[in-house]
């Protein structure tokens, strides 16, 4: 390997790593606020990429059905809760977001020729479809057992992931897709040929991180989420609803996942089940940060990206083996740092 190859691999690693950074941040966010180890994060990535691909190809995105079904499930659950509590306060809001909104999406999907709508139009519609899946998922799957042990939440998360992969196959088929790049030009910098899409990935990731940082430090909702992450009961006593925090968190997670999917799909072919592996790499990074520290998770994500690109050069067949085996020394290192008996829950 000479210097220029190393440079190219580094560039690849950083571009992939930037996406893992986003996912790792989302995973740390979800875990700290809700204690859910959010295995289905990768599904947002794959579903966003494939929805965009469907729109590009002029096909009806199956995600619309998912949003409709999710909305109906939320309505049904809310209705039960409302009847039980005789509390009709939020009914307009619930119906609006979970019935009217999906119906509007459905109408838009059915009437507009998205091939003519332009790249940004398609991206906007993709986000409109994927982002509401987050809060719906929280309401239907996690809110009823929000106080269960971490282990139960994890098993539910895995179950949701499994169901979503099956649904992904049904909605998008077994074929893989690549979407159109946002920026087709290439830049030559010394020995490097930097594709415009790589610039986009890095720029957008950075922008999103800055945006999230602002959200958490400046807005009342961001501060509420941070408070919940620090102390759930304390935040609750201060009037921060854990359910709202959970829905908001999964909305952010879905948005981050969808942006990641839109960013990587011009670089990598995405299949209905690709999300799992991408999401897990985010997990390896998040675990480096102990599922708690954002900067360490981001550094871990870059490490994972670099490790992946270099190992695909040296031993491409063992790329995944190497990346996932990384978790073992990382866990070992963490086990040396945690000191024994802690007061567990349950």
């Amino acid at each position: 390997m000479d210097f220029s190859i190393a440079l190219i691999l580094t560039q690849d690693g950083i571009v992939n790593g930037a996406v893992y950074v986003l996912l790792a941040l989302a995973l740390v966010l979800v875990f700290t606020v809700t204690r859910i180890i959010f295995i289905p994060q990768g599904e947002f990535v794959a579903f966003a990429a494939l929805t965009l691909a469907m729109l590009e190809n002029g096909r009806f995105p199956g995600t619309v059905w998912l949003v409709l079904a999710g909305g109906l499930a939320v309505c049904a659950m809310e209705a039960r809760a409302l009847v039980a509590r005789h509390d009709w306060h939020y009914r307009v809001q619930v119906l609006g977001w979970n019935l009217a909104y999906p119906l509007v999406l459905w109408a838009l999907a059915a009437t507009i020729d998205w091939r003519e709508a332009g790249q940004w139009g398609r991206i906007a519609f993709t986000l409109a479809l994927i982002v509401p899946l987050g809060p719906m998922m929280f309401r239907v799957f996690f809110q009823p057992i929000a106080s269960a042990p971490v282990l139960v939440l994890l098993i539910v998360a895995v179950a949701v992931h499994v169901a979503l992969v099956g649904l992904g196959l049904w909605m998008f088929g077994a074929e893989g897709y690549r979407t159109l790049p946002l920026w087709d030009e290439n830049f030559l910098v010394g020995p490097l040929r930097i594709p415009g899409q790589a610039v986009w990935v890095l720029g957008a990731s950075l922008a999103l991180i800055v945006l999230l940082a602002q959200f958490f430090s400046r807005t009342i909702y961001g501060k509420a989420l941070r408070a919940t992450a620090v102390n759930r009961n304390g935040a609750r006593l201060m009037g921060i609803s854990p359910n709202l925090a959970g829905r908001l968190t999964l909305m952010l997670a879905a948005a981050i996942g969808a942006v990641s999917g839109i960013l990587v799909s011009p670089i990598t072919t995405i299949y209905y089940d690709t999300g799992f592996l991408i999401g897990l790499k985010g997990f390896v990074a998040a675990i480096i940060g102990g599922l708690a520290a954002y900067p360490a998770a981001a550094a871990g994500a870059l490490l994972v990206g670099l490790l992946e690109s270099f190992s695909s050069f040296w031993a491409s067949a063992y790329k995944e083996v190497i990346v996932f085996t990384l978790i073992i020394p990382v866990l070992f290192w963490r086990s040396l740092r945690t000191h024994h008996v802690e007061e567990e829950e349950e």
Binding site: I37, I328, T338
Partner: peptide, 20 residues
């Protein structure tokens, strides 16, 4: 390696090594 860690690292570790 994994059993010394608190609860949720073990399942995550097993996912990773299962894939490997």
């Amino acid at each position: 390696i994994t059993l010394r860690l608190s609860g949720h690292y073990l399942p995550l570790g097993t996912i990773a090594w299962g894939i490997s």
